[in-house]
Amino acid sequence: MADLTWRPAPRSRLTAASPPRSPRWRLLPSAVVLGVVVLAVLVVPLFVELNEQYVDLAIANQPPSAAHLFGTDELGRDVLLRCVYALRVSLTVGVVAAVISAVAGTAVGALAGSIGGWFDRILMRVVDAIASVPHLLLGIVIVAVLRPSLSAVIISIALTHWLTAARIVRSEVLSLRTRPFIDAAIVGGASRTQVLTRHLLPNVAPQVLLATTLMVPHAVWHETALSFLGLGLPPHAASVGNMINDAQRSLLVGGWWMSLAPGLLLIITTLAVSGLSGVWRDRLNPKRRTELTW
């Protein structure tokens, strides 16, 4: 039916419709950017030591220059170098939180989907109920209970983000359960547990992995927002949110570069992660190639 696809006629050559771009065009740039970021985050700390308490007021508040590409902050620390450390902390928080929430979500979703009945209904109502509380607010409550710290931030992200994974796994399990190979396994004498671990879980694994990678940027965002509000990592620790929070004061006296770098880096990294997982998703289910998110 592709021939019937109608597009309003272009008015001029300038706006002539181009052929739909293949999703692959974003594979290379995303991979390169993510590669550079991960490499920087892993390698730079090995060679350059960043003492978080190190202060050099002689070079404080310098705008970007050849020596300091993104300038220095109010205590004379190099913004770019600090960004690398901040991104390391933020990405670690994001990955750990995403993995925890994916595991929790898979457990709940698989149980709900494979047991079914009342158990399923109640569990999904609980998921609906938690989903009605705005994520950041719930995160703030959890951080308030546990007091701001690295583990509190990770727990607050994990506890608010497992819902997506649970819903995906449940619906996948429900649709897999009607497939002949599951019937065959049951006829062949497989127990409930065997069906779940040998047949259902391996088949939802790709979807779960995809959901986990898509969750990483979201988790990083959550950490950044909490830190920005002063409810995340301790103020002296370099994290993207803390850096932007610190930079607020300098902004008032004209120091724009201190918040520019962390924000830009975060945007680029997020786009790279979602670009890569977008390519992956298109491979996984080509039917849903045109999606809202990347």
């Binding site: 052929p19 950044t224 949110g241 918040s259 924000g263 997020t270 998110t293």
Partner: peptide, 26 residues
């Protein structure tokens, strides 16, 4: 597929990735 479309969608993806408080500060 036009440049208008590309800049609108590109801008949207970038804004989706940008933390709202960072945009606010800018």
């Amino acid at each position: 597929g036009s440049w208008l479309d590309r800049s609108i969608t590109g801008g949207c993806y970038a804004l989706e990735a940008a933390p709202v408080f960072w945009v606010g500060l800018a």
